[in-house]
Design a protein around this nucleic acid. Structure first.
Lengths: 128, 128
DNA sequence: TCCAAAATGAGAATCATTATCACAAGTAGA
DNA sequence: TCTACTTGTGATAATGATTCTCATTTTGGA
């Protein structure tokens, strides 16, 4: 792993919520001022490949990512108010991964739960 | 509903699998030869708004859609071999929509199951 | 040190999507 | 009929995220 990739990983670690590649570029430049756009995109691709990043939708045409430090199969809770992301155990379990649905053999799945994080749910919509 | 929008809806009805907007433009032109790109995008937006189309991920940077004629809450089974899409009842049920996960109040969710449709599962990877 | 392979940065290129604009069709009121 | 207004349309420019290219630098092994 190179110095640049370490910077990108560190920058990703710093986010408490979902981020775009653009956010990540800005954060990575705090660690490595001259780092280029293409380098961050390449780092994101390889981290996504390794399971260290996961895409959780998009915002205004940009892909949204979250950092995944956990190894086991899990999914994400995305707060629609503040963008905070939490991990949750897979709510589907074996049925989704193994079962056949009218002849359709499911091999993988993608689940994202949207709602309000504890803080936003407590303060209400006007609580910011 | 205008003639153009009817053409787009009819074109969408003709797909047995997920399609891109580009696919849809080509199909819509079979019905309305001169239909413009922007018109199809506008029709897609309004159909998605009305629940008649649903986005099920992307392929090569283009959004993928499926036609949704069913009204009730459901999700999609996407065949990774041939792209066929089937509807399936929500595998999560009430827990996902109502329950709190460590203070996180879930209000909506997105589930997509990937695998092989009956035809591709039967013929095997080399059969498709 | 020397070498091959991989990584990097700058910026151009690509391409899906959106915005703009002039025009046509439809509606309502007088 | 005439006018004002709204909405849909097609062509095309603009936007912007992402990828590609290429010369250079870095890395890891011997």
């Amino acid at each position: 792993m190179t110095d640049r990739r370490r910077s990108v990983a560190a920058a990703a670690d710093g986010f408490m919520r979902a981020f775009t590649v653009d956010d990540l570029i800005a954060a990575a430049r705090a660690h490595s001022p001259g780092i280029g756009v293409a380098t961050v995109y390449r780092a994101v691709a390889s981290m996504e490949d390794a399971g260290a990043l996961e895409r959780v939708g998009s915002r205004d045409g940009s892909a949204l990512y979250v950092r995944c430090s956990v190894e086991e199969h899990h999914h994400h809770l995305v707060c629609t108010a503040c963008g905070a992301v939490a991990h949750t155990p897979c709510p589907l379990g074996a049925p989704a991964s193994d079962a056949a649905h009218e002849g359709f053999v499911v091999t993988s799945h993608q689940v994202t739960l949207y709602g309000l994080c504890a803080a936003c749910a407590t303060t209400g919509p006007e609580g910011g």
